[in-house]
Design a protein around this nucleic acid. Structure first.
Lengths: 151, 151
DNA sequence: CTAAAGCCTCACACCGACGTTAGAGTCAAG
DNA sequence: CTTGACTCTAACGTCGGTGTGAGGCTTTAG
């Protein structure tokens, strides 16, 4: 497919797709006239890219991770030494990714606490028309630092 | 404490601390001569700010979260309608964040299996005493940029 | 008192991840 | 063949988060 279709199917702008290519995250082939031709699998790939970039992962990490996430074992070298090096590299990125996830989880938990407070706590005395449902009422009363830091 | 000490204790540059203030995320008092004076609690606060910013949360959300942390329930609007809107906004961010986390986790898991694959092949059948955690085992032998990261 | 260290406020610069525009080529349909 | 949608490259603009000075006060140590 060409870039317009990929854009439509992924929600990424044409500009973003070209930018990803510039960064080595996508490598479409070209027609004689220079048009980019993408594969079906690139739809998936773009989704991954956007997810990882939106999590503020360095594009180098994104690129490296993508090569193996999407190309699978085909990219595994034969030489044992090469494989060892590769494993270490990937392990480093794995650790980065894990850190990032922990950081995100911490932020999410903090956000969840706040949401619960806003929804629940301040309901106040005698507010008849209030549709009480969705979220539990009990939460932080004095608004202390209820959430720990991850780091 | 003054800005230098806070910088040293948080690892954030002086520039960053001033920038956070500019964005309303920190509100140190000033001496007569204009020096910023921070509180103990600001150490924690900076850690939270950096955590949330590194998670690429929208600055508005960070600001609201931080305002909540600073002012406690005082930051929650009185008007039920305002509260509802705020809660919805935050809930939306919360959901987005949760999705992002799930997606990243799936990427991480995939990456983990690949690493295990590569490493497992390298290590061979019997390797009992190997603690899976640390990396630097039998790595970079020939050295050289086999898998260079851009940037 | 004086020098060094620390802090202040601009203010310009940079990088990543885009948006936008301009000018030109390509392609399918009428 | 012409038109209009699509694509190309190239370049500049923007915005958030930082680095890096310049020039001038303040505080602290000797």
């Amino acid at each position: 497919m060409r870039i317009g279709e990929l854009s439509a199917r992924t929600g990424a702008s044409v500009r973003m797709l070209r930018y990803y290519e510039e960064q080595g995250l996508l490598t479409p082939v070209r027609t004689e006239s220079g048009y980019r031709i993408y594969q079906e699998s690139d739809v998936d790939r773009v989704a991954r890219i956007r997810c990882m970039l939106s999590a503020a992962l360095p594009s180098g990490v994104v690129g490296q991770a993508l090569r193996f996430l999407l190309d699978g074992r085909a990219a595994i070298p034969d030489e044992p030494a090469d494989r060892a090096r590769l494993a270490d590299t990937l392990q480093g990125e794995l650790n980065l990714l894990t850190e990032k996830i922990e950081s995100l989880r911490s932020s999410r938990d903090l956000l969840a606490t706040i949401v619960a407070d806003v929804r629940g706590d301040v309901v106040g005395p005698g507010h008849p028309g209030d549709p009480g449902g969705a979220v539990a009422r009990r939460s932080v009363r004095k608004a202390g630092p209820a959430v720990g830091l991850a780091r």
